[in-house]
Amino acid sequence: MKNAYILAILFAFAVLSVQAQKSNWEVPADKAERLSPATFTPENVKSGETIYNANCVSCHGNPGQKNFVPLNPEPGDPADAKFSMNLDGELLYKIQEGRGAMPSFKATLSTSQVWDVIAFIRTFHKDYAQEVAAEVIRSGLSGGKVAIQLVYNEAKHTIDALVTEVKPEEVKAISGADVKLFAKRYFGEAAIDEVKATNNDGKVSFSAPSDLPGDTAGNIELILKLVDEEAFGEVAQSAVLPVGKPTITHSLIEKRAMWGTVQKAPLWILFMYSGGVLAAWSVIFFIFFQLRQIYMAGKKDEETGVVREEI
């Protein structure tokens, strides 16, 4: 009996700790320690407020007014301790990545826009004192610029990229850098394959998405991005390559259909309608003609003087 008791308590603890863990949003240490490269200015705060009102207010409400939407889990008020306890880097990570009901803003807002939002939120945190990143170290570079070459290897059906650092005196391969490949679509960029790292020669190879529709020749505009913005800045290179499926688009109103315009009406209905109208109205006009015949017959009798007895 006693054992059962203890088991029950243990069980309860286990459940609670799982739940606690669930509500605890762990941020990887290196990300948590990130700092803004510049001191927050009133301009940053103002821009952050605009962005906040456009993207965040519908769930989190206005900071300090606790008018967030009562969801489960609670989105919370950004002025509260739950938020102020976070490091700048933690806030950055959470806004960018999202979790559950909290959408990811990675593709919507640039890093500097997210910093602006953090600048705005921090104005509600009384004891906050900003720490600025000592120096922006482009750790991956040694004074040069990133250059990316994208080529399509038809034989292996891969998209090969060469990532180098170009300096006036030399061109050096960038190795071990995470890169991501995207295909340009009408409203955004669709990721192709996983994040991959460049090898010692600065090369990386993605399998070509042969089933992804391109233009009539299969051309797709591809974009290669370096993932580590801290190390390389925002670097992207695009190229149009024939990696996709050649696609001939068809208009949705090519065929004749009941819902089409008159020009696109099914032939049978055009014939039936016009045939019916023509048949009925030619008979009606024939009758009008007959009425005229009656009149003409009477007129002829009148003229030729055929006298009839009055009826």
């Binding site: 007959q290 009425l291 009149y295 009477g298 009839r308």
Partner: peptide, 19 residues
């Protein structure tokens, strides 16, 4: 329509009615 009860007129009228 200058109707005078002639059989010609009746013939036309009857035919038209039937149609």
């Amino acid at each position: 329509l200058k109707w005078n009860h002639s059989s010609k007129q009746f013939k036309i009228l009857m035919k038209s009615m039937r149609i």
